[in-house]
Write a protein that binds this DNA or RNA. Sequence first.
DNA 1: GTCTATAGTGGGATAGAC
DNA 2: GTCTATCCCACTATAGAC
Lengths: 181, 181
Amino acid sequence: MAESPIRPRAAAIVVAAREILEAEGIEALTMRRLGEAVGIRAPSLYRHFADKAAVEIVLLEAGFDELADSFEAAFERDGESLATLGQAFRDFARTRPHLYRMMTTGRLPRERMRPDVEARAAAPLMRVTGGDEHIARAAWAFAHGMVILELDDRFPPGADLDAAWSAGLAAFAANIGRGGV
Amino acid sequence: MAESPIRPRAAAIVVAAREILEAEGIEALTMRRLGEAVGIRAPSLYRHFADKAAVEIVLLEAGFDELADSFEAAFERDGESLATLGQAFRDFARTRPHLYRMMTTGRLPRERMRPDVEARAAAPLMRVTGGDEHIARAAWAFAHGMVILELDDRFPPGADLDAAWSAGLAAFAANIGRGGV
DNA sequence: GTCTATAGTGGGATAGAC
DNA sequence: GTCTATCCCACTATAGAC
């Protein structure tokens, strides 16, 4: 499904890459390891992908697509609200921590990615913040901060993160449309 | 100043490490590069530090100390408020982006760090949120999210980040003590 | 405390035969 | 499309001479 169905080998490589990423983390995703997982030697991978980055791009694009799917499904299921979005966001990240990290750490290779891919994932937040772009960006930063600090084990051991999420989302929800200060 | 004044060579190594980190980023900080910067061969560094992590620990501790210093100075200068803290936080990160990244990306090697070092940097936020730990954590996540997304160039080109900061800080300030939903 | 030499590991990627 | 062989790179870290 990722990339072209005409090339089953390439698709299998992407599937294997995703499995390695989720199971062992980003450093485990090497061309040698990937070849092994798919049953060929590392150099043969280059018949299917120009370089390692090309494989990573496919993973990234799939990740953003899945994130957008999650948001849209959550809206249908639980109604369109900031709380719904926050829940879906956190669930997404906790279900695929390594993919989430890959999607959000460092620069994004936008030059090599499908141009619409980020926008579709961002659209639900725009809806729910009613066009208040400042609150939208603040809420995005909040959600990303909560998730990445949780994944990286930065909160104190007993911290009630549900409560922190609630407090944050409530604060933003109460301030939509007030335009800053 | 970092570590022991009795060992000037070790101090010089730390200074060089900090310079390399800030100037060229975390991947540039290798033992070879560090030896070169300080005028000795890489293996000789191991007479001064047990391993590479030991050098990094010193940088991390110094970073948290500086962050705490920044907060305390900002409180004295501009008064104790969430807005003051947010400004100081953002300034800190933008002034030392690579150090900030190193301090906040991935797991923290807490076992090898001074135990009080995180707590001192966190204290000002506790003060300003008046003991509402949920709002405190949410505000921390917001600030980190804003900063790291800015450093990693994730916001749209023309985005007004001052406005996003204001909107976020105002939302939190208005909700201190309300205890979530 | 510094050196040279080197071990040991890992990575991405290419050439050319089949 | 896959293979073997290989290049070239980079890294952390140790041994042992000086």
